[in-house]
Design a binder for these strands. Structure first.
Lengths: 265, 265
DNA sequence: GACTGTGACG
DNA sequence: CGTCACAGTC
């Protein structure tokens, strides 16, 4: 069995105390973090080692973005794409280096948020987000090995992925254009949406609640921005999937919560 | 009996938890804070009221400096000098409004730090500090009522007020020029240095330890920058004086510790 | 609302 | 080392 967690941590240095709590409690084999917000040499390697996580693939930059994959089973860095070709650290890929599942690829990605206005002309960041997804789509077309891609996709595709489909139709993260673009990425490889295989629509499923409200539970205005997608054959080996909503209430929380999937490898 | 505390708090909003602890523990009648670092409308009045302190004289500004006098016995704002005439909030004066000691004046002051280089030409801030003290000296010359002046004077006048007289002779806060300038202020009214009346030189007496060292106790590199000076007749009524060095070890401490004097009024 | 870096100030 | 302000991002 191999378990994998994805978590947009919104500063790994600031959040290391709750990351440690999470690892002690949930003990996934592999933890994929997004928005680590630090350069690679400032990543808290020692704190992870002290918890038994001794394998790393970190793609960081100063201040913004950045992803890091941390593991207690051997992994090997496999790829590091810059799909925007602008130097931003938004992806790192690893493969399982030993044991059952050896060669399985785990891609950790942080898709651009896309700014406020869902219009390429008025808001270049929205265009960048779509372009990023389209380049990922072309890349996915050539995937030949069993692959798990996880991370903050910054898109909530289904109606039951948001607290109000109607009120979010023109809000970046849930616009039809983004949803279609994400669908093309899905089709390019035939990804299986593990989250929705285990928590079927139309059941409510969120992974993010804004900081901009006193009580995140009040109104439950969440969105499912974080995802775990697998190649079809790998998806069939997923035996369990959990969303740790409680983490949104922890001390100094991230605005995202961790998602975990177990695989019978 | 009336007890008065002076404490450079280095942000009253950030430090309110330890201020509350202090008031519960020491319960002075009057608390004079410096470096409150907030505008008046952001001063935590309610937190003080909840502790039984319902009388205030606050002179604040955005971000820097600022002084506030908080009392559980009636006080009345008396003066608010701008000795530099540059709009900085560095002084507020009150008088006891009722009971024994009615009319006694308590001045709360935050003398400019003076920058790094002890030279007017190279460092205008050093000149401003001296000018500030000289204007206070002219003001002190006209004092006619029993007065207590407390606060962060940013000068450690005596050899035993610093961890190394020799090593600090050219360090702003202990230069001969500052010490002479402070002495002229003392002479202008005949102030009595209550701290040194109770803890006589050459006994070690510090009220500040820099943040710039891991362990403030290591080497004990302190300075006596905070003072409580009284008119001669008032000084004779001072019955006790304490320095709460422990406060330097509290959770998220200020770099200054509170000084308290009791008066038999 | 909460994070980052920066720069000023101590 | 540690505070605040500011601007940028999400």
């Amino acid at each position: 069995m191999v378990s994998v967690t994805t978590w947009n941590i919104n500063s790994v240095r600031l959040r290391m105390p709750i990351v440690a709590d999470f690892l002690k409690q949930e003990a996934p084999d592999i933890l994929c973090l997004q928005e680590i917000k630090c350069e690679e040499h400032l990543f808290p390697y020692d704190a992870f080692r002290a918890l038994g996580y001794e394998h790393f693939a970190v793609h960081g930059q100063k201040g913004y973005h950045g992803v890091g994959t941390v593991s207690r089973i051997p992994i090997q860095e496999y790829s590091r794409h810059d799909w925007q070709a602008n130097g931003e650290a938004r992806h790192v890929g690893v493969e399982l280096a030993e044991g059952p599942g050896k060669g399985t690829v785990i891609e950790n990605v942080y898709v651009p948020a896309g700014g406020d206005i869902p219009d390429r002309e008025q808001n270049p960041k929205f265009g960048q987000k779509l372009d990023f997804l389209e380049r990922m789509t072309r890349w996915a077309d050539g995937i030949e090995r069993p692959t798990l891609i996880v991370g903050d996709f910054n898109i909530a595709p289904l109606e039951s992925d948001v607290w109000s489909h109607k009120q979010l139709l023109k809000v970046v993260s849930h616009t039809p254009l983004e949803v279609e673009t994400l669908q093309r990425f899905m089709d390019a490889h035939g990804w299986s949406d593990i989250g929705r295989e285990h928590i079927k629509a139309p059941e409510r499923y969120y992974s993010w609640w804004s900081y901009r409200s006193k009580d995140w539970r009040k109104g439950d205005r969440g969105r499912r921005l974080d995802h775990m997608w697998a190649s079809p054959e790998l998806a069939r080996q997923a035996t369990a999937h959990r969303v740790l909503e409680d983490a949104r209430s922890w001390e100094k929380p991230s605005d995202h919560v961790p998602l975990t999937t177990e695989f019978a490898l």
